[in-house]
Design a protein around this nucleic acid. Structure first.
Lengths: 241, 241
DNA sequence: ACCAATATTTAACTTAAGTTAAGTTTATCA
DNA sequence: TGATAAACTTAACTTAAGTTAAATATTGGT
């Protein structure tokens, strides 16, 4: 299968010539904390990360899951402190660009402006879908929707459909993403497995019945900006198996 | 009380010289629908509106509440269909700008660029707080947080603190914002009233115990980009009463 | 290979919020 | 101003998801 036309709209292409510094993080490391200044533009070269806010010591909400080639933190040079922590979920490499350079490119280059507009747009669409999940889907539907969102996002960066994928989210991360207890996440994942929607073992997950999952979760990948016929190609391919 | 310094960062100031067309809407009118093209930049001059997505006929999720001087729809000229309907909550006046004009100003004017960056940022912060509410706050806390968010946003456009405010959201709108049933919203609003946190009658609402509400709901107005000391000024003022 | 720390799984029980089914109050408008 | 619809309220009952408490499985470090 051919890669999405939207694949061109990525941060690397937009910022190709700019200088940056790289830092390595270990799984569990704090990449930045709530209250830190938005002093650089950050891009996650390798590894996974997540953005989290705490209500108190035991109560937290995960706002974003970041995969390789995603940005971390804010997309524009707003004069604000970070409102959330970002933690490395796996070992990770992060590139730091100066806001001065990035703003200049975004304002001067049509392509960079469009890329950053689209990234901001998609990030918001993901939040919209998360709000729908948390507010109005059942636990089973929440889990199904999250799996399909992650599969779709990962496939885009790989540029193709693979059978299974690596999902380093633990069940307690899923819980804090979906507004559930981790025990109920466990019940839901096992029910998806029992009913042959997915195969699942720790961080290895594989969608068996894409159509069934997508129907149940009311999942339409177009909000992730795959090209319009991606969805149908997926469905046809699944149906043929 | 003095108006916020952030008051300067508004759409009117950023787009002052641009031509636009205005349209009137009646309460309940559809301003645009899911699937429509993002063909113009829209600004809500007068009245209230909300953005909504449907899972099926009876299940919906409200993504945004828009007050006078907010934008409607997308902040950047992405080549995408709208993912939600926007409905007038009251009679409303909407200005339509051409994307061509708006993008040019945003790229050429430092002030417009900063304004649109900040608006995009604040919109995302509101979504983050909504995710925390829906996922991790109790019904009482959800209602409290929503009231404080709306009060804070309304005060900013008015540039001062007023005693009560007009909140044209019905209880079923609040339910679809907060992921609750409208009956449970009713129970929660009445409990807030019974415990003297608020006075409340249909669309007229007044916060009586700001500190109590803010503490209960874990509400910190800084995500709405009031100036840093706004929170404390508010608290002191309330405490003095 | 063993130990310790993490993660996952299952069961039994509890609870916050949903649902259904009335009423009552308030707004609209002919 | 009276009829009708929309919004709000309350009570009784149900249910999806939370909680607590084990047990089991996996991973990582020494």
């Amino acid at each position: 299968m051919e890669a999405s036309i939207y694949q061109d709209y990525n941060i690397k292409n937009a910022l190709s010539d700019l200088p940056f510094e790289q830092r390595q993080f270990k799984a569990g490391d704090v990449i930045f904390k709530k209250g830190d200044d938005n002093s650089h533009f950050l891009m996650l070269e390798q590894g996974w990360a997540f953005a989290v806010q705490y209500l108190d010591q035991d109560l937290r909400s995960i706002q974003h899951v970041k995969i390789p080639q995603d940005h971390l933190g804010y997309l524009f040079p707003v004069d604000a402190k970070y409102s959330y922590d970002v933690i490395a979920l796996t070992d990770a490499t992060v590139s730091f660009y100066s806001w001065h350079d990035v703003s200049k490119v975004v304002k001067d280059s049509e392509f960079a402006f469009n890329t950053f507009s689209l990234l901001s747009h998609i990030e918001k669409e993901i939040l919209h879908q998360r709000i729908i999940s948390i507010g109005r889907r059942t636990a089973l539907e929440k889990a199904a929707h999250l799996i399909l969102e992650m599969q779709t996002r990962i496939e885009r960066t790989k540029g193709g459909t693979e059978k299974g994928f690596y999902l380093p989210l633990k069940q307690d991360h899923m819980a804090d993403l979906l507004g559930l207890s981790s025990i109920h996440v466990n019940r839901s994942m096992n029910e998806l497995r029992r009913h042959n929607y997915i195969e699942y073992n720790r961080s290895d997950i594989r969608v068996i019945n894409y159509n069934g999952l997508a129907m149940m979760a009311n999942f339409d990948p177009s909000y992730l900006q795959f090209k319009p016929d991606f969805d149908e190609m997926q469905l046809q391919q699944q149906a043929a198996e």
